[in-house]
């Protein structure tokens, strides 16, 4: 296991290296003068020259890249052109907001998706199975941004049950400790604010969770159906074990590996989907940070935002790979 972990970590190096190249290329592959593109057509020659110097674009690209890598290794993500603040400092609250949103969304997706898949397989060809699978099929085909807007219209505007946008009550702001509002409110004993934070989380997390939930449900159903045909499951039933334990203890353990792969992949996709969800719900996360940067042509923020999300995506996939061994002891990577 240790050897495999080390090997897997080393295999990440070329991928991370390539990612920095792609991100570096974002600004350098812009046709024409990037400074001109960033400042717009009406920019003066002096302003363009200043920005060119500021971004270091007047030097050969390979020197710029070496400098960029050096800065990254020191944790320096550059300076935002809009706020003039260091990106590595201002990104943290955004990251925490996205972390909170994606974690809750993934939790919703896994709990509902896995259970819906299990029940569908357990009561295969029942009305529940048909309804769940039709919902899952429609869920997979639904554009996340449209679903978000429809949820906003239904639950916020028409029914008035949940807030339309934002992360908390702006008139009674939460004092940030960890920037995770659910945690902060509990740490401060503000249970009223905790409820408010949950209400704000409900719609964006539901919108974000729908597609992974549908995919997880379909995957769980398919693998459970296969596992439930196994001899050992029949033996367990023959021994008189209750169906609940056969399904949740014996079958699920063996069906979870492909589901785990899907969960890992979907977590990465959630990070991508966060850009759309955060834009709709005014959620101040990393996706919204990148989206605003696109509007302002703040290329250093676009580069850093994309790099951070991609790095997290790679990290999640690594964790999922390592989790296989924990979940399924039959997998031995050292051999």
């Amino acid at each position: 296991m240790f050897n495999y972990t080390v090997r897997r970590l080393f295999s990440l190096i070329p991928v991370l290296f390539g990612m920095t190249l792609v991100v570096f290329a974002i600004i350098h592959a812009i046709p024409g003068n990037p400074a001109q593109v960033i400042l717009g057509q009406r920019a003066t020659a002096a302003a363009i020259e200043n920005l060119t110097r500021e971004l270091g674009l007047d030097r050969p690209w390979y020197i710029q890249y070496v400098d960029y890598l050096g800065q990254l290794l020191q944790g320096d993500l550059g300076t935002s052109l809009r706020t003039r603040g260091p990106i590595s400092e201002e990104v943290w609250p955004y990251l925490a907001a996205t972390f909170e949103l994606t974690l809750v969304a993934m939790l919703v997706a896994v709990v509902i998706g896995v259970n819906a898949g299990i029940i569908s397989a357990w009561f295969s060809k029942s009305w529940f199975d048909y309804v769940a699978m039709v919902v899952a099929l429609v869920g997979v085909s639904m554009p996340i941004f449209w679903l978000g807007l429809m949820l906003q219209w239904g639950f916020s505007i028409e029914l008035g049950w949940l807030p339309t946008t934002g992360r908390n009550n702006v008139r009674d702001p939460i004092e940030s400790i960890t920037n995770l509002y659910l945690v902060d409110t509990l740490l401060q004993g503000r249970f009223d604010q905790f409820t408010t934070a949950i209400k704000h989380l409900a719609l964006p997390s539901m919108a974000l969770a729908t597609i992974p939930m549908a995919i997880i449900a379909r995957m769980t159903r398919a693998t459970m159906l296969e596992v439930m045909k196994s001899d050992y499951v029949r033996t367990a039933r023959a021994k008189g074990l209750r169906m609940f334990w056969v399904v949740y203890k014996h079958s699920l353990k063996n069906a979870i590996i492909p589901v785990l792969t899907v969960i890992g992949l979907q977590t990465g996709l959630l990070l991508g989907g966060a850009i759309l969800t955060e834009t709709i719900f005014g959620w101040p996360g990393i996706g919204r940070y990148v989206y605003d940067a696109i509007s302002y042509r703040d290329y250093p923020v676009i580069q850093s935002g994309i790099l951070i999300i991609a790095a997290i995506f790679v990290l999640i996939n690594l964790i999922v790979d390592l989790l296989y061994v924990v979940v399924d002891p039959r997998i031995k990577y050292n051999k």
Binding site: P14, L21, V22, L269, I294, I306, I309
Partner: peptide, 23 residues
């Protein structure tokens, strides 16, 4: 390796990166 690097990005992010370059 090129495929690995491209797949390391969530697809919509890579699309944003490409459009950020091309306009």
């Amino acid at each position: 390796r090129i495929f690995d690097i491209m797949l390391a990005f969530p697809s919509i992010l890579l699309a944003i990166a490409v459009v950020a370059i091309l306009g």
